[in-house]
Design a protein around this nucleic acid. Structure first.
Lengths: 305, 305
DNA sequence: CTGCTCTGCTGCAAAAAATGCAGCGCCCGT
DNA sequence: ACGGGCGCTGCATTTTTTGCAGCAGAGCAG
């Protein structure tokens, strides 16, 4: 966060690596390129190895630099962890939790969880980043996120799974839609009506695509978007069907405006939501405690297996 | 080893913690107490917490300081690891291995192993510290040793076992001792003669004590020492019997001066030699490779189970 | 080819930080 | 009571870091 001056050189190297150029990094750090350049040079001198390859358009990490940078990033977040541990034993219970997650968590689940957590520990702050599956995992690796909550992740080796929750797919429609009378709906029935779908990188879309591949059905969305909110609003206005997973749904399964009807499991198998962290990393107190809270929350709210 | 100036503050804190006083630490670091004092103060300022409690006779780590120091020590040896990784990919294969071990390893086993390793990697340097079981484990914890080779350790929770080797106890005597004619000797026969023993903290002594406790025999050493070499030399000169474990014996079981005769397993069970490292720590390349070499060596030389 | 721009890098002077010296007040053991 | 150890501070000095201006080199547009 702030200061801790002895690892300023480390932050400088990190910044240069991110910016890809000393001058740009210097600007972000609001120092002169001279100073930054000389610190890099000094660091390379001390190590006896080039950290960056010099290109005509900037710099790039050398092999040694890659190793060093990895170490630097763990070191930086380790220091944060130590700081929150220290704050913790002073009874302050402060710290920071940063989360990378899929869209479905944003409207309801995370706000609720964070609010509940902050009620108990008001000094803890949060960063929440919207990231697709791949980007969320990358965020763990470069320590820009402590926790990732992702739907149907591409399982990366660095991803340490804390929890797996099955998430059935729901069809969202207006309350007076013909299908709204049923408890659960069949996929083929939905597809007789116009539908709105998330774009391909999203897990829900992938599940549906996989489901229809086994059948003679076809997905022919009249609306595509990468924004779930938009899809739901549009479904409302135009009276078409869209799809979402359980955790993204408001209140009960029904709100005043629209209803959510579970799709038969035999048509579309439940997707899987993963909560995870970086393999082998020791989380800061605050993040670890928040992760535990989430785990508890899932135990209570959903059937896990 | 030295340099890497950005973690000088960390080394300073470590030094003060070890010395227990700023002035003493300053002397060791060959700087003024003023400078050191101010660095500590600055560090505490940045952290917003006292790292050291001030006592009339010096300083002592505070609770926060304990946490911080633990982090500092990991950080310091992590940096060493990174440096050797970097050197490694430059093909230099340099680095440093520090070992805490029992006495029995010093005369033959470690010199041989280190020599053989250094033949392959001449740029790797070694520190070898003689430590009893407890001190060796402490050395792992405070990162003053990468590896520990100890006989009959008090199993600490931080100790991650890499290898276990059974080590039978041998009786050492002059070649013309009455018992020297037998292949293996009985403990009760040994105790009919004058004996020389290591002092109580040592594993061999403990094994023998345990062994006689089940019998009517008694250990009545005419010589006690904490130095195995002395015991052996003295046994030679005075023609008395002493005891040692397999790995400490020279060449074959016999040298020109004395012979080693295995004590019947039913009298004195084999002791156990442990090779271990700090739980959860990632060893520097050189140390990891050396540990592997040792593991291989044991596979070839002894029956392991 | 000629400008033009963007890069990393360097000489030199100014600014900032760390250091050492001397000395203060404190507390303990004798 | 007193000497010796301790942590800490004001001030002068030294060392380090920073910023400004300017360099050479490489891509790029014309």
């Amino acid at each position: 966060m702030e200061t801790m001056r002895h690892l300023l050189p480390l932050r400088y190297i990190d910044a240069v690596a991110r910016a890809g150029s000393i001058r740009k990094a210097a600007e972000m750090l609001s120092i002169t390129s001279t100073a930054l350049n000389r610190r890099i040079l000094a660091m390379e001198e001390e190590l006896g190895v080039q950290i960056f390859e010099r290109l005509p358009r900037g710099v790039r990490l050398s092999a040694a630099g890659e190793i060093l940078l990895h170490h630097i990033r763990t070191q930086l977040s380790d220091m944060e962890r130590v700081k929150s541990q220290i704050a913790d034993l002073a009874g302050e219970r402060r710290g920071h939790v940063s989360i990378a997650c899929s869209q479905a968590l944003l409207p309801r689940f995370l706000p609720e969880q964070i609010a509940s957590y902050r009620k108990a520990h008001p000094a803890v702050t949060f960063s929440v980043y919207l990231r697709d599956r791949a980007a969320a995992e990358k965020a763990l690796v470069d320590h820009s996120a402590d926790l990732a909550l992702v739907f149907e992740p591409v399982r990366l080796s660095d991803f340490q799974i804390l929890l797996i929750v099955r998430q059935p797919v729901y069809a969202i429609m207006t309350a007076n839609h013909p299908l709204a009378v049923q408890e659960t709906v069949r996929l083929r029935d939905c597809l007789r009506f116009p539908i709105a779908l998330p774009t391909t990188p999203y897990g829900v879309r992938e599940l549906l695509e996989t489901a229809v591949r086994r059948t003679s059905l076809k997905l022919q969305p009249v609306i595509e978007s990468d924004n779930f909110e938009f899809l739901r609003y549009h479904a409302l206005v135009e009276d078409i069907i869209t799809f979402q997973i359980a955790i993204g749904l408001p209140g009960g399964n029904d709100s005043q405006d629209f209803v959510a009807r579970r799709i038969a499991e035999r048509d579309v198998p439940s997707g899987v939501l993963y909560v995870g962290q970086l393999q082998g990393r020791i989380l800061p107190m605050a993040s670890a405690r928040f992760a535990n809270q989430i785990l508890d929350a899932f135990d209570k709210r959903f059937d896990c297996d």
